[in-house]
């Protein structure tokens, strides 16, 4: 139990201070696209300096250490209470060590809980799997980009968007335009087509566990992702909304069924600081990685 808590504290440290390699290389690629002497070029340069400095000093790479969404894979019948306790204990410990900002406020009074625990936080999902060990992954998502997330209900008259793939595309491009730089561009879109409103957001956020450079196994969605990415990067919003050639680093889409009456397109916006980390526990073996299981089609 004590060991498990230490392991999860280390997982939170990694998530908050060490930007995943796939995200970092996407930003490096973006930097090569921007012209020298522009504000966009400076912004990406500072972002990469920051990534290195955070990793070196174990300081939170962004001060908004976000909402924590955990997915814990465990054998069928494995008790969850000790895992929940370990996660909550690790959250408190990681806050004390300044890996996390005290980031949970009681909604109406505004009182900060001081330790990142709160009603509804951290968010923990348990997923039974066939293996014997445990696997945990956590995503940290800040408030600035969360405020840019949005949900469309098709048809949408303003966009001229019907209940079809072009309609979905219109929603995604509109969401990128509406976000401008406010979600800390260059960002990543996590998208869910279908579902009810709640499941739409959950599935859209799960997409952020996918590596930025992967290609959707669903050919139709892969084409949509590539098209939206290309258009978004020709929209001219650019890093931080300064103008430039990189507005998005990636687009990741999930497809769900829906009711005949509903057609939701949920767009979760993730800032460039897409923070996630994983750990696999098998017997005494503890292995940290940046590879996640969540969000795969």
């Amino acid at each position: 139990m004590k060991n498990l808590q230490e392991t999860f504290t280390e997982l939170l440290r990694r998530a908050a201070t060490d930007l995943p390699a796939d995200v970092e290389s996407a930003i490096e690629r973006a930097l090569r696209e921007e012209r020298r002497g522009t504000a966009a070029h400076s912004a990406l340069t500072i972002i990469l300096q920051n990534t290195a400095a955070a990793r070196e000093t174990s300081a939170p790479l962004c001060q908004d250490t976000g909402t924590h969404t955990w997915y814990v894979y465990l054998p069928e019948g494995h008790p969850t209470e000790e895992l929940r306790k370990a996660i909550r204990g690790a959250t408190v410990q990681a806050t004390r060590k300044s890996y996390l900002r005290p980031n949970q406020m009681e909604s109406i009074s505004g009182v900060n809980s001081g330790d990142n625990l709160g009603a509804g936080h951290p968010v923990i999902h348990f997923v039974p799997w066939k293996k014997t060990g445990l696997h945990a992954e956590v995503l940290l998502k800040g408030g600035g980009c969360e405020n840019c997330s949005t949900q469309y209900s098709l048809p949408d008259q303003r966009l001229g968007a019907g209940r079809d793939l072009p309609g979905v595309r219109a929603c995604l491009l509109d969401a990128v335009h509406r976000a401008q730089g406010r979600g800390c561009a260059p960002g990543i879109l996590g998208v869910a087509v279908g579902g009810d409103r709640a499941l739409g957001y959950r599935a859209a956020k799960e997409q952020f566990f996918r590596p930025v450079h992967d290609v959707n196994a669903d050919a139709q969605l892969a084409a949509l992702e590539a098209d939206v990415l290309s258009c978004a990067n020709r929209m001219g919003v650019g890093p931080m909304g300064f103008g430039g050639r990189t507005t998005l680093l990636g687009v990741k889409t999930a497809r769900l069924h829906r009711l005949p009456a509903s057609f939701f397109v949920t767009v979760a916006y993730m800032c460039w600081a897409c923070r996630r980390a994983s750990v696999t526990l098998a017997g005494k073996d503890v292995r940290f990685s940046q590879t996640a299981l969540t969000g795969r089609p």
Partner: peptide, 13 residues
């Protein structure tokens, strides 16, 4: 003045 969002360690320095 627009600072670089997310570059929190570099700015703290």
């Amino acid at each position: 003045l627009h600072a670089v969002g997310g570059a929190a360690v570099t700015l703290a320095q």
